[in-house]
Design a binder for these strands. Structure first.
Lengths: 136, 136
DNA sequence: CGGTATCCGTACTGATACTG
DNA sequence: CAGTATCAGTACGGATACCG
């Protein structure tokens, strides 16, 4: 269980899996990946690409998200260094969220993945249909 | 509620969000994205990039996954057209799983995302550390 | 406005046992 | 070997109420 002292500078996920680590439970990447691929993480990252926005802006834009999950997901992303939070000390409170450069990089990749699925949806749905028709 | 009859040929996730759809709940993409980004979906897609493998091979390689979730996740990915399943009619049963061309494309993108996180982990951890030191 | 704390239902997860 | 069925624990997610 002393994976932490392994000498190699790892690298790819496939590498880790080949070592039998599976991208080990202990690995912080698992945590980050979880935040990013969480139900609202994906949507929030994409939403933030529009630029700096307030808490309520995001709540409206993402639509369907509860305050709890919005706050929590933003905190995860902030802790991971993907989101910057600026609270203006006024009443009523004014808080702005934006992507950090690191977050912008990530958001692009996430959006690319989501867009790929959008784009390939016809093929995906066709696969489903063909299976139902007896091809499975 | 009649989003389905909207004329435009949609496109990007950001587009959908801008329309207030958020990548609507009704949208099948949500379902697919859920399968792909699920706890085991990511790992399985990457694992399958090594080539055709049997059920038990995958179980061993992914390590930590239960038979139930392995079967279920494989079924999701198969239904979405990302995974091909071939059952040889012998005893004991011999079933092989592999990526379809579509699945291979997807797996590449997923792995790229995971690898990016692996690669940027130092920056991410640094972000966490700096926040704990009072920068937050 | 921008959160936090609490309660609660659900849905995902895993261990076990069983079947073909 | 490759699943399926069942059951129980957990963790996620949402609604509500309350605080700064």
């Amino acid at each position: 269980m002393n994976d932490r002292i392994s000498p190699e500078p790892p690298a790819t996920l496939a590498e880790l899996m080949r070592r039998g680590n599976v991208f080990a439970e202990q690995c912080p990447s698992r945590e980050v990946l979880k935040h990013v691929t969480s139900r609202w993480g994906v949507l929030l990252l994409v939403a933030l690409r529009d630029g700096t926005q307030r808490f309520s802006d995001l709540r409206r834009k993402v639509g369907g998200i509860s305050e709890k999950m919005l706050a929590q997901t933003l905190q995860w992303l902030e802790a991971d260094g993907f989101v910057a939070r600026i609270a203006h000390p006024v009443v009523p409170p004014h808080v702005e969220y934006s992507l950090t450069p690191l977050g912008e990089e990530l958001a692009q990749k996430v959006e690319a993945l989501a867009d790929w699925i959008e784009f390939k949806l016809p093929e995906i749905m066709a696969a489903r249909a063909s299976r139902e028709n007896g091809a499975g």
